[in-house]
Amino acid sequence: MGIYLPIAEMSVNMVVLLAMGAAVGFLSGMFGVGGGFLITPLLIFYNIPPAIAVATGANQVVASSISGALAHFKKGTIDFKLGTVLLAGGVVGSTVGVWVFSLLRSVGQLDLFVSLLYVALLGTVGGMMLVESVRALRRAAGGNVASLRKPGQHNWIHRLPLKMRFRASKLFVSVIPVIGLGVIIGFLASIMGVGGGFIMVPALIYLLKVPTNVVIGTSLYQIVFTAAYTTVVHSTTNQTVDVVLAFLLMVGGVAGAQYGARAGAKLRGEQLRALLALLVLAVALRLAFDLFVRPASLYSLSSLSGV
């Protein structure tokens, strides 16, 4: 069934997009991730112009993260102060990101930059997760209990100035790494169309030593508003947010996420992380393949504005 996308100015198959949204929603529900890192590459593989895929991906991330954020809000597992400082950084990063995005688009290097960022980030994060989860699986087989947080340990981050107290996280830490993390997440959100949870969650746990019970909620709270801000800035600067496309993905995604969460509850944490790592690596490999293999045509056309 065809549907015309008013911003992308092309006709696409509605069923394919709903299924894409549902599949990504299923995986994101299962693994507890936003799914932006899957949606944007899938849209690009489906010939949606990368500029539109990224901006629309950011919009979809809002919908897929809000439901989780609401659940954590109800449970009281959001550190609002920490999240708001992260968000302040996110706004700065996103603004810079959208500016870089427009610049790259005008010189014709946006697709390359998006692909490179995806390959580098997904490759690194996926590789690290795979190593970590395989170790955890081995340890679990040996009967030891894995612990993520080692409260006694301090690292270089705790020696930085401008410390601030975050009561909900029981943290007394410098705002510099917190804002810096927010900036990076905002930048990635605007250039890759991702929520950034796959970087935010490990960074909060391993670098800032945030207690695991508030990590997901705080991360989701920050992601919802950073992605919302990114959507508005992309829409204002580049006019590349396609609501029809975003809505199809959201509907499929919201429904798929519920079933994914049920499937995820049946698997153990380490197994989930190993599977997610394999998935992330697969996306990175697929994008790398496109970069390194001679394309069918060496030439491409774009309008002056870059779409």
Partner: peptide, 10 residues
């Protein structure tokens, strides 16, 4: 677009 995402997610 953001409002639509909020409502859909909600």
């Amino acid at each position: 677009a953001v409002a639509l995402a909020f409502v859909t997610g909600w």
